[in-house]
Design a protein around this nucleic acid. Structure first.
Length: 930
RNA sequence: GGGCCCAUAGCUCAGUGGUAGAGUGCCUCCUUUGCAAGGAGGAUGCCCUGGGUUCGAAUCCCAGUGGGUCCA
């Protein structure tokens, strides 16, 4: 094992008169020009030195600082790159949010598969880190949203050629540190106060030496020299315990926190005051916070000390606060009262910027993925605003940021925020009612609300424990709040992880050449010729358990299943035989044709595609692009494809949208889609370099997934451009027509649109019309009158139901007053009536009720559907109705029961009904006697 | 992607297999009248849909639809 010490000995340090020191506090090694420096310079080893004493020659605002950095590096041969979205899942599928500038170039550029957009480059990349959410506002230095400025260079070792998308060395450690140092000096920094701390970097399977750059106590930069990858046999063991070895590409990845630089240039007590002055002023004003001079002074001093508060590092927040109060010589409670609203305001300012970034990039609130993170941030912010007792609207706050950021979709963002705030309020209201109810119960019993209920409230109703406590205390109930609350929640979610389905691969497959794809040349051609390179027999996978075959050809026109488009079907023919192709799959570039028979290895075959199937698939595929585009037109630019599946009879596209689709919106989408069809524009395909495609069209290209490779296939349908591997019709008119069949919400924030294209659309229309005509015929009216007629019938049907109820009761009364011919017997001092009424249960019950009202014991039997009994007993009569019914029912092979005064029962044996009724007097006498 | 919760009167919700309820709102009448309120009576309903179990399902089971929520 080697360590990295040698890696940090730079000529630059030597020439500039640096020396290597070791921190007397934390033991870290660092480089400095200052002969007397003993510590590494970073808190907690040292305190901030720039507050009230700015570190540069000028104070900068955020935008000015960004420009200063980018133009400096532009002047030093770096190309300036536009920032990427904060929703990193737009171009990679392993992370949700952009957390560092290097994320922009992972994984394809860093691995060397794709060239970078420029080399070297500089960028200021908006990022969101949610890990620090609890620190935001309180520590004075943590923000959730930030911009990471970076100068980046991609190098490949000289001795490798052509393997990677970039070659040679642009610059490495010496130049990187020199650039960094020069920029500091350019900003007017005192070179003696800069320290470079040796701090090896590890992340995402890569590692390398790195420096943390500290100036006046603030960490202003990180210089990472990514040069190793994880390797069990590697010679370097890093701090994550894994071993690493050098790789062929090596990358300069630097990070300069724009907010920190701005802060240091201004020397304000907290970073928030430097970065969000307008929002903070606005919120303070709205919350009517107006401090006196002495209070200002106190806050100022407390803020300086608050840098020591870090929820991760400080074990006891309260103690740390008390400590600050102690140092300032004030009551902790007073300090708390003073600081709390300010901390909330700082947090709100930061959170609304985060929200603006998220919604600006088209993230839609949801119960999954980035949408869920957005929802969490929004709810947290809404709650902070509630606590502030100020009349401010969240959509206003977010819009102020959106305006500052110059977003075009401001109205949509407002809509999203308003709709989400409304949902939040509804959740709160619904939750509060539930909590109140339950709290009252527990309060009456004098018991505390148990932890299990808290978990239930959180997990199923979205109520935080402190909110439950708050509400419960209003009703006078105690709450049993456990320390390990979140682990209790987690334990409700532990589930057996679904096992990954491992695809079995054939060793022989690896030796075969990639199949040449003919289907892009002419998507309408149905015939081709090819040579059978290999045939794999698949036992038991054919029809009736027989064998099936996977045929590999040198070239093919069969489209393999992919991108939501099902495989082509067709035939392969030799001179002697024709085999059916029922499935086509791509494995590592090799196309496998599933057939029912073996055409023979080495044979020359003619392939024939089932074109009616292919045409339907192409129509549906192009229609998918059309519908997606139409949805964007109608609903807004936030709409993205979140999944799609094509078929021959119908297809579906899932789109992100923050609300249910109204019928009018569906109609509008359908209309726009069919306009595109009617316009009959040419559907074009092209194969540009991915960097060109990205810079021209942005990441909206990748709605159907992120394709690998240096060049990508783009499909243009009207103004819509997407990276897509599927087959398409030549002109939009070839789609014929598009009908939306259904929409459903498959997740919060994701709507599924099911539609049909071409003949399938017509078939759908005809089926629908058949339904209507059939219904119209039944009603014997013309189709336009069906809705009104149906409504009338339904109303009449309900009225008749009520009328029948009334009549049954009248009938029952009539029967009870002697009209029904029931048998009357004496049970002690009581009269019992035993009567057979062949009617439904309602009528039997009504009859029994009427008899009971006359003060008689009622035994009513019915044979309309099996055998049923109702027994009613007036108040005070010595008979248990439930027992009587039970005995009667057992005589007809069933059971029954009910309260003592009114019971029902029955059984399947209708034949035995009369016998059972005959034995009723005995049963009644027994029951009365017992 | 997975887990959990929910669906009953216009609204908010009770209802543990046996005759569908409360509060509120609504209608009529009375009292009072500046408003608020009070008294008496009345109408509320495909108990989300479809299957199943059962003599019997708002209730139990399965599936679907719609909504909520937590986690990755």
């Amino acid at each position: 094992m080697s360590d990295l010490e040698a890696e940090y000995r730079l000529d630059y340090f030597e020439e500039e008169g640096f020396r290597r020191g070791q921190c007397t506090e934390c033991g870290a090694h660092f480089w400095t020009r200052d002969p007397d420096r003993e510590t590494c310079g970073e808190p907690p080893c040292e305190e901030y030195g720039f507050i009230d004493d700015p570190g540069f020659d000028e104070a900068y605002e955020l935008g000015e600082m960004r420009e200063r950095f980018l133009s400096f590096f532009e002047a030093h041969d770096h190309e300036r790159i536009d920032p990427y979205p904060v929703a990193a899942n737009r171009w990679r599928d392993d992370v949700l949010l952009t957390q560092a500038s290097i994320y922009d170039f992972q994984p394809l550029v860093t691995s060397g598969e794709t060239p970078p957009p420029a080399n070297p480059l500089c960028i200021s990349q908006p990022c969101i880190r949610m890990q620090d959410i609890d620190n935001v506002g309180r520590t004075g230095r943590h923000t959730m949203a930030f911009e990471m400025m970076s100068h980046t260079a991609f190098n490949a070792r000289e001795d490798v050629d052509d393997e990677y998308a970039y070659e040679g060395e642009v610059y490495w450690k010496e130049e990187t540190v020199a650039y960094c140092d020069e920029f500091f000096v350019d900003m007017g920094a005192d070179p003696e106060e800069i320290t470079y701390i040796e701090d090896p970097w590890v992340g995402g399977g890569n590692a390398g030496p790195a420096f943390e750059v500290i100036y006046k106590g603030a960490e202003l930069g990180t210089l990472v020299f990514m040069s190793m990858s994880e390797d069990p046999d590697g010679e370097y063991e890093m701090k994550d315990g894994n071993t690493y070895s050098p790789m062929d590409t090596y990358i300069v990845d630097t990070g300069y926190g724009l907010e920190r630089w701005t802060w240091v240039s201004q020397g304000t007590p907290t970073v928030y005051e430097a970065v969000y002055p307008d929002t903070i002023a606005y919120l303070k004003d709205a919350a009517a916070i107006d401090h006196g001079e002495e209070e200002e002074e106190l806050i100022h001093r407390a803020a300086k000390l608050a840098g020591h508060l870090d929820i991760d590092e400080v074990e006891d927040m309260d103690a740390a606060r008390d400590n600050i109060a102690d140092k300032l010589g004030v009551e902790p409670a007073r300090l708390h009262e003073l600081m709390r609203p300010l901390e909330d305001i700082y947090a709100i300012a930061d959170h609304v910027r985060t929200l603006a970034y998220m919604f600006g990039d088209g993230i839609v609130p949801s119960n999954v993925g980035t949408g869920y993170l957005a929802r969490m941030v929004l709810r947290r912010t809404a709650r902070l605003i509630d606590g502030l007792d100020a009349d401010v609207a969240l959509d206003d706050l977010v819009d102020r940021q959106a305006k500052r950021l110059d977003y075009e979709n401001r109205e949509t963002i407002r809509d999203i925020v308003r709709s989400e705030v409304r949902k939040y309020e509804e959740t709160l209201e619904r939750g509060s009612r539930k909590v109140e109810q339950l709290a009252e119960e527990y309060a009456e019993r004098g018991e505390p609300i148990p932890a299990s209920q808290l978990v239930e409230f959180y997990d199923s109703h979205g109520l935080q424990p402190d909110m439950v406590t708050e509400i419960a205390e209003d009703v006078g109930a105690r709450v049993d709040e456990p320390d390990d609350f979140y682990s209790l929640v987690a334990s409700r979610h532990d589930s057996g992880d679904a096992f990954d389905e491992t695809e079995e691969t054939d060793a022989r497959l690896g030796d075969l050449p990639d199949t040449e794809e003919l289907y892009y040349d002419d998507q309408y051609r149905a015939e081709f010729e090819a040579v059978v390179l290999d045939v794999f027999e698949r036992d038991g996978e054919g029809e009736d358990g027989g064998p099936a075959y996977d045929v590999v050809l040198d070239q093919t026109m069969f489209y393999p299943e992919g991108g939501g488009q099902p495989a082509d079907h067709g035939t392969l023919s030799t001179d002697d035989m024709t085999v059916q192709v029922s499935d086509v799959q791509m494995r590592d570039g090799v196309v496998l044709h599933r057939t029912d028979e073996d055409p023979g290895k080495g044979e020359f075959v003619r392939g024939q595609i089932d074109m009616s199937r292919r045409r339907r698939l192409m129509q549906h595929h192009t229609a998918t692009h059309v519908i997606g585009h139409a949805a964007r037109e109608v609903l807004g630019s936030h709409v993205r494809q979140a999944g799609a599946q094509k078929g021959t009879d119908s297809s579906r596209i899932d789109i992100s949208h923050y609300d249910r689709l109204s019928r009018d919106e569906v109609k509008a989408i359908e209309r726009v889609a069919n306009e595109i069809v009617t316009d009959n524009t040419v559907v074009e395909q092209e194969w540009p370099h991915r960097n060109e495609a990205e810079s021209e069209h942005g990441f909206d290209l990748y709605q159907g997934g992120i394709p690998p490779g240096e060049t990508i296939r783009l499909i243009h349908v009207a103004e819509d451009v997407q990276a897509c591997a599927g087959t398409h019709v030549k002109r939009t008119g070839d789609i014929g027509s598009i009908r939306i069949l259904n929409t459903e919400r498959i997740q919060d924030g994701v709507e599924r649109i099911t539609f049909a294209a071409g003949i399938a659309a017509l078939q759908h229309d005809q089926t629908q019309e058949d339904y209507l005509r059939e219904t119209a015929e039944t009603f014997d009216v013309a189709p336009p009158e069906v809705p009104e007629t149906a409504a009338r019938f339904f109303t009449e049907w309900k009225e008749r139901g009520k009328r029948i109820e009334e009549l049954k009761e009248q009938l029952a009364e009539a029967r009870a007053s002697g009209g029904g011919g029931g048998e009357e017997i004496e049970i002690g001092e009581w009269t019992a009536v035993i009567q057979r009424v062949d009617a439904d249960m309602d009528e039997l019950r009504a009859t029994a009720n009427a008899l009971v009202d006359d003060g008689k014991i009622a035994v009513v039997g019915g044979g309309a559907d099996g055998a049923q009994f109702v027994v009613g007993v007036p108040d005070g009569a010595p008979v248990n109705a439930g027992r009587v019914v039970g005995e009667l029912a057992s005589l007809v092979g069933g059971g029954g029961g009910g309260p003592a005064d009114f019971a029902q029962g029955g059984g399947p044996d209708a034949e035995a009904l009369d016998d059972a009724l005959e034995s009723a007097p005995d049963i009644l006498r027994d029951a009365a006697g017992a």
